[in-house]
Design a protein around this nucleic acid. Sequence first.
DNA 1: AAAACCGCCTGTCGGC
DNA 2: TGCCGACAGGCGGTTT
Length: 270
Amino acid sequence: MPELPEVETIRRDLEKHVLDKQLLSIEVFEPRLLQNCSPVELKNTLCDRTLTALKRRGKFLIFEFGPYSAVIHLRMSGWFSRDAGAHTRMIMDFAGALLYFDDTRRFGTLHLLKTEMLESQPPLATLGLEPLAASFTARSLETLSTSREVKQLLLDQTKIAGLGNIYVCEALHQAKIHPQQRANLISKKKLSTLREAIQTILQNAIDHQGSTLGDSVGDYRTLSGARGKFQDRFCVYGREGEGCFACGAPIGRIVQAGRSSFFCPVCQKM
DNA sequence: AAAACCGCCTGTCGGC
DNA sequence: TGCCGACAGGCGGTTT
């Protein structure tokens, strides 16, 4: 499931593939993909325009066509390919280079917006800090910390944008913090360690083209269809019962807000 | 403010 | 072997 590293990998691939090219056509086959416009409006607004920039904000991909932009969220199973797939929901023709948006579970979203309005309109307006930006500091993490469980804080996209279940689990393990720890009870020193862990994990994951969990149809792929490689470096995610690489204790699993949290009960004490 | 829960969707997997 | 319920997951919405 695409989180920040996967979206960033896709963004970089797309940049090489279609940046500065003219959009000749855009066909949408899944009406639910479009959040605030019709297929015809999308086509009329973007066709013949040149893709002037490809950006990322949190887990969102931003296709900038000069004054208009398409903001896409991949949700659970969205990805881009140069080939048609079993679940192609949209086809973009960039000067003859076809780009297919595939989305098995149909959760993906696309917002059409004026570029100048991106920061003030949904879905980007309420997004929190970019975790890889220099402005994301231990101090900012401290400011965000309330009495809620630290895992819930890190998953809250209005506080920090881009982390999902996998990278939160990994970052908390690296920082040796229990996922149920109340955020406001974590020491400044630990928050500093956590900030560093978040940035290290995300950067490391980007360097490995993100994580692909299984071989299923809906699992994340790069533009060329390759799997990510960071899943081989997980320390806790999906490793319930297996030995912690730091202390050997079996990795545990609890459920928070309906989602699995993997952690080492020895390294990550409350 | 924040937690708990639901719905969305489909492929996969364990159990019988 | 085949069927079926459970499950996974991000996020917006509703209720508590």
